[in-house]
Design a binder for these strands. Structure first.
Length: 574
RNA sequence: CGGGCUGUGGCGCAGCUUGGUUAGCGCGCUUGACUGGGGGUCAAGAGGUCCCGGGUUCAAAUCCCGGCAGCCCGACCA
């Protein structure tokens, strides 16, 4: 392909508003352009990268028995009503009417569609297991898209769905696809860690996320360097702490003026935060009031609390609601609170004697509060968010936390979508629910992560497997331009794809752009190289090394080992 | 949805505080000359509803009000 065919030119200045280095380079290298919030165009170079990634996805999905399909982007609302998600999901599900005022939605995932197909297409146990996947657009009206391609509203997802007779069958496919995911990220040159995760809105009973560790990530994962424990902070637990043994002593009311935060309380009373309990006032989506108690030095993990009270969603209580249960913000505690609120206590608090808690009266706290004696817990559960440095639940070594981007996830859904009629007739003649699994990879997000991972100060350094072209050919001067056709011919006839800089720009401009675009092999042809016996070749990943003179006839053989990871011959553009 | 920041030729920015000439600068673009291996030099050009709407004023890029858009933090989110 010739550079004069490309739409979009490289940028010398970093566009305003692009924060992360990877996103800056995707813009500067003319890979993508933003159209609206969370909505992007892929320019020719970006499209080539995307095509490469998709090819790897197809190969790996096919390798574990996947059959590619294409499911619609626009769904009648009825399908989502039947699964219950039409009402369960908030405004991120885009709803609209067609010309006959029939309600529709834009696909934000495709479980419903696969389940609907399974209902009509699968009748017998002989038709299971199955694994279908697609590479499709999704639209999620996210309240806050950000980070360029990291968090989009319109995005491309590789989503796959397994259909099985029973959980054992699901486990088998799940493990196989887990392995395929590891291979996909390896081939794309992106280091990830697989962590256990919350199932979220998908429902189901087990999930893993494939996380790329980066400070721009929006998730926090908890890692143990000794034993390999790795979980999303939403579900992570630390080893149980053992509070000092101490006999309960009588509770007393103390004056604590202005101590309406844990920080001020510890200052006023001269005690460490570990000796305090704090109350958080939450309401469930089904209208229950929840008073959660964690130790003063710890953060509430809302995912854990939601699980403990079996709530779909939680929100903070309003001041009126707090007042109605008889509590006082800043001085709140379960002591003396009426039965309108469900009291949920972190297990560490439940075992800790003589804590300081609020008195539900402005300016007063209670010393020596003991669970069971001074108030009753309706539920005792692990509610605390894991902090770095806490001991690992498996081996006791100090845990580490890292920011990460979720580039892929896999879910064991189980039978929840059987409600859409996804059942089969078993070998025993009985109707049984199909057991489903769901498997996603965000293609754009994966590219964004690779851009973060694979660059230097001059531009992208794409892994050969997904680079837009194998070779970036700089044709310098009339002699270089004149000789470039033969070089392209030599490479393309060997199955190598080439981007030719045929713009007639000066050497410096061509070199700078080649480094920005980041193809693995950079070849220069010019009067000088011809006089030296061929072309100059060097690797993008090794910019410091002197280029090597290679005869045109030997060039393809020189290039090939450096682009071995490329798997598909792309059609030449002509 | 809350908080903060920003909207000025294709890109990056100045000007706004304290209203007043033809709204500037760098890059890019066009034409010509020179140059020709790391974003070269010189010259001549093209290109602008100063985000939108309203208001104040003799006069608004500039001040006021209201929108819209983008970015960041938070809430939210597979």
């Amino acid at each position: 392909m010739r550079m004069t065919q490309l739409l979009g030119s490289t940028l010398r200045d970093t566009p305003a508003g692009a924060e992360s280095p990877g996103y800056q380079l995707l813009l500067r290298g003319a890979f993508v352009r933003q159209l609206g919030q969370g909505i992007f165009s892929f320019l020719p170079l970006g499209w080539r990268v995307k095509e490469r990634v998709e090819e790897i996805l197809r190969q790996e999905m096919d390798a574990v028995g996947g059959a590619e399909v294409l499911l619609p982007l626009v769904h009648p609302a009825e399908v989502w009503r039947r699964s219950g998600r039409y009402d369960a999901i908030g405004p991120e599900l885009v709803r609209f009417s067609d010309r006959r005022t029939r309600p529709h939605v834009l696909a934000l995932t495709h479980e419903e569609i696969v389940a609907t197909l399974a209902a009509s297409e699968v009748q017998s146990w002989r038709q299971l297991p199955r694994f279908v996947y697609q590479i499709q657009l999704k639209f999620r009206d996210d309240p806050r898209p950000r980070g360029g391609l990291v968090r989009l509203r319109e995005f491309t997802m590789k989503d796959g769905y397994t259909l099985d007779r029973d959980p054992a069958g699901l486990d088998e496919q799940y493990a196989r696809i887990h392995g395929a995911y590891v291979e996909i990220f390896r081939r794309c040159g992106l280091p990830v860690v697989a962590v256990s995760a919350d199932v979220g809105m998908m429902g189901g009973y087990e999930a893993h996320e494939f996380m790329y560790l980066t400070p721009i990530g929006e998730d926090t994962i908890v890692l143990c360097d000794r034993c390999g424990y790795a979980q999303n902070r939403q579900v992570a637990t630390a080893a149980t702490l053992q509070p000092g043994a101490e006999d309960p002593v009588p509770m007393e009311r103390v004056e604590t003026p202005g101590a309406d935060t844990i920080e001020r309380l510890t200052a006023v009373m001269g005690i460490p935060a570990e000796r305090t309990a704090k109350a958080l006032f939450m309401a469930t989506s089904d209208g229950r009031m929840v008073l959660a108690v964690v130790r003063g030095d710890m953060q509430l993990n809302e995912t854990k609390l939601a699980g403990a009270v079996r709530a779909a969603e939680l929100r903070p209580m309003t001041p009126e609601e707090i007042d109605a249960i008889g509590a006082v913000p800043g001085y709140g505690s379960p002591v003396g609170v009426g039965t309108q609120a469900l009291v949920v206590v972190d297990e560490l608090v439940a075992r800790s004697p003589n804590l300081v808690a609020g008195a539900n009266e402005a300016g007063y706290h209670l010393r020596n509060v003991n669970v069971g004696r001074d108030f009753q817990a309706d539920v005792v559960a692990d509610l605390a968010a894991v902090e770095a440095g806490q001991p690992c639940v498996q081996c006791g070594a100090p845990l580490r936390t890292e920011r990460a981007v979720e580039t892929g996830n896999i879910f064991k859904l189980g039978t929840r979508y059987a409600a859409l009629g996804a059942t089969y007739l078993g070998e025993d003649g009985e109707e049984k629910p199909i057991v489903m699994g769901s498997y996603g990879i965000g293609v754009d997000r994966l590219i964004a992560c690779v851009a973060e991972e694979c660059h230097d100060e001059r531009g992208m350094v794409w892994p050969a497997s997904i680079a837009p072209f194998s070779v970036h050919l700089c044709a310098l001067g009339d002699e270089g331009l004149g000789a470039s056709d033969a070089v392209v011919q030599a490479l393309e006839s060997a199955g190598l794809d080439v981007l030719v800089d045929d713009r007639g720009e000066r050497a410096g401009v061509q070199f700078a752009d080649a480094e920005l675009v980041g193809c693995p092999v950079q070849v220069t042809v010019s009067k000088r190289s011809i006089a030296a016996g061929g072309v100059e070749a060097k690797l993008r990943a090794d910019p410091g090394r002197e280029p090597e003179i290679v005869p045109v006839a030997a060039l393809a053989a020189w290039v090939a080992p450096h682009v071995g990871g490329r798997t598909r011959r792309m059609r030449p553009y002509r």
